[in-house]
């Protein structure tokens, strides 16, 4: 090879050939910033995502459910750490990212600003919220950024357990009393629309998607993924014996997809702005955990230094 290939051409060429970008590769500043933001807020979502379900660990109805829920919440912590580790390869630092989270400068998914009122919410989060996350995350396993794609592969394998335990939990409740069935239906009513919001605003309102698709850090548009999720969920709901709170939801033979009603984007924007039911308490809880743990982190450093000097 004689010609000097410019860094930018090399980057474009790597993307074109569907090869992965790796940590020390030169990347355009926009790509680096977009990836750091995307990975950081994904990590923050996993970390904050421990809270809604963690709320039920001490009150799980059986030892079996408690063990499952503990494992699931531990997985969420693990997912957060895989992702902070991926962000670190782009020059971001975990302590710094945590600081940006607890000072509200970086965001997390608005889905975690909704409360878990009954144990049925735990099941519905596994089924619908984790189901929606799987729809988003499976294509991310082919993200052009290698460390992120690899983290997503690990995460997707574990998410499958999350979704199935949730669905099984709901099936068990549906076989119970009338009151339990009502509890499940009410939880479904609460989470259905926020789950659809997880895919983001309609494509017409998402101009950034084009750049992200070109860089292959996004593989499908918001509307494509939302439709896929709706199509997957409807048969699962009827197998379970629940309905979704949408009178316009019906099969469209011509399109080969389910039609569904309009999402309330005002609610979505409002929750993002910080006015959701749990925004303040989620951040306050995370901040408290971080500050309460400071002495442990410091003591571990002091202990390590002492051992080194012996």
């Amino acid at each position: 090879m004689t010609a000097t290939v410019s860094l930018e051409e090399h980057f474009e060429h790597t993307i074109e050939r569907d090869q992965r970008i790796e940590p020390r590769d030169w990347v355009p500043e926009g790509y680096r910033k977009t990836m750091i933001r995307q990975i950081a807020q994904h990590a923050h979502s996993e970390i904050i995502g421990m809270q809604p379900e963690g709320n039920w660990i001490t009150r799980a109805p059986s030892l079996r459910r408690k063990a499952i829920l503990l494992a699931k919440v531990q997985d969420e912590a693990g997912h957060g750490l895989y992702l902070y580790s991926a962000a670190a390869t782009l020059g971001a630092d975990r302590a710094d990212l945590t600081d940006k989270l607890i000072t509200g400068r970086q965001k997390y998914s608005s889905i975690f600003n909704y409360p878990t009122l009954t144990f049925a919410d735990v099941g519905v989060i596994g089924w619908l919220v984790d189901g929606a996350a799987i729809c988003n995350q499976v294509p991310l396993c082919r993200s052009s950024y290698g460390p992120y794609a690899r983290a997503m592969i690990r995460i997707c394998k574990e998410e499958s357990f999350h979704q199935r335990q949730g669905y099984e939990l709901l099936m068990t409740m549906m076989k119970g009393t009338e009151q339990q069935r009502e509890m499940v239906q009410e939880a479904v009513n609460r989470w259905w629309w926020p789950s659809l919001m997880m895919f983001g605003p309609p494509d017409a309102d998402s101009p950034n998607t084009a750049q992200s698709m070109a860089w292959k850090i996004k593989r499908h548009t918001n509307d494509e993924l939302r439709q896929r999720f709706v199509d997957m969920s409807v048969p699962q709901a009827s197998a379970l014996g629940v309905t979704f709170p949408d009178p316009e939801l019906k099969w469209n033979a011509e399109r080969g997809h389910y039609d569904f009603g309009a999402v309330d984007w005002d609610e979505f924007k409002n929750v993002l702005k910080g006015n959701g039911p749990c925004n303040a308490s989620r951040i306050a809880h995370r901040r408290r955990a971080h500050e309460d743990g400071a002495w442990v982190r410091e003591a571990a450093v002091a202990h390590a230094a002492k051992k080194e000097h012996k």
């Binding site: 996350a133 988003n136 997880m198 895919f199």
Partner: peptide, 18 residues
């Protein structure tokens, strides 16, 4: 809402100004 995408796994989060 133009700055929002569904990137980041668990759902749409603002990108601009972050």
């Amino acid at each position: 809402m133009s700055e929002l995408t569904s990137e980041g796994g668990h759902g749409a989060v603002p990108l601009e100004g972050v």
